[in-house]
């Protein structure tokens, strides 16, 4: 009886420890040197391009286990870079991101669906200025391959575009839009490379 109990306990322990390992999707580490969150927005007639230089991310992705896959990004608004320091400072002010009060933009996926042809629709909560909004980020999965430069590593690639209305997200009050200076639609281009040990 005692022996049976010991075996049962050992089995339960094994199940408890192995199951999450089996269920969790593969963890990928963002290659920050080759990833970014770019954006472009209309300025009267032209387009102003920018990017965020400081962000963190967590990717768990397995095409065969989408239920356990997830994407989480946290972007520091103070790292906005449009190649003009004074414009960046203005974007960080209360007129736009209000970085002092709201230092982060976050995206936390809640559901990933396979739309076919390597396209995944990542539904998640996009939090801007403390307010969460539903956002579908369509990510095109470029595939997984051995990293040509780093031995023992595999690289996965994702690219996606989404357009958001900055005024809906309260990035600005609309005064510059009303003046016809800054557009309200912001095109966001997400380009990611993520690494994982083989």
């Amino acid at each position: 009886m005692k022996r049976f109990s010991m075996v049962l306990l050992a089995l339960l322990f094994l199940i408890a420890t192995i199951q999450p390992v089996l269920a969790a999707a593969r963890v990928w580490e963002l290659d920050k040197g080759h990833s970014n969150f770019y954006f472009s927005v209309d300025h009267i007639f032209s387009k102003v391009h920018g990017q965020f230089n400081d962000y963190s991310g967590e990717i768990r992705f397995d095409p065969d286990n989408l239920a356990e896959s997830r994407f989480h990004f946290a972007i520091k608004t103070a790292s906005v870079d449009t190649n003009i320091a004074k414009r960046d400072k203005h974007l960080q002010s209360a007129d736009f991101f209000d970085s002092a009060k709201y230092p982060l933009l976050t995206f936390e996926s809640t559901k990933i669906t396979d739309a076919g042809n390597g396209l995944y629709e990542v539904l998640g909560n996009f939090t801007v200025k403390g307010q969460a909004y539903d956002l579908v980020l369509p990510l095109s999965f470029a595939g997984i391959k051995d990293h040509p430069a780093a031995k023992g590593k595999e690289v996965a690639g994702f690219n996606g575009k989404v357009t958001i209305d900055r005024l809906v997200h309260k990035i600005g009050t609309g005064k510059f839009y009303d003046l016809g200076v800054v557009g309200k639609d912001v095109e966001i281009f997400v380009s990611l490379e993520a690494l994982s040990s083989k």
């Binding site: 320091a85 960046d88 400072k89 203005h90 960080q92 209360a94 970085s99 002092a100």
Partner: peptide, 14 residues
């Protein structure tokens, strides 16, 4: 003041 006292221009690009 117009950019906010909590939004100071600190860093190499400034």
């Amino acid at each position: 003041a117009p950019e906010g006292f909590l939004n100071l221009p600190i860093g190499m690009k400034y």
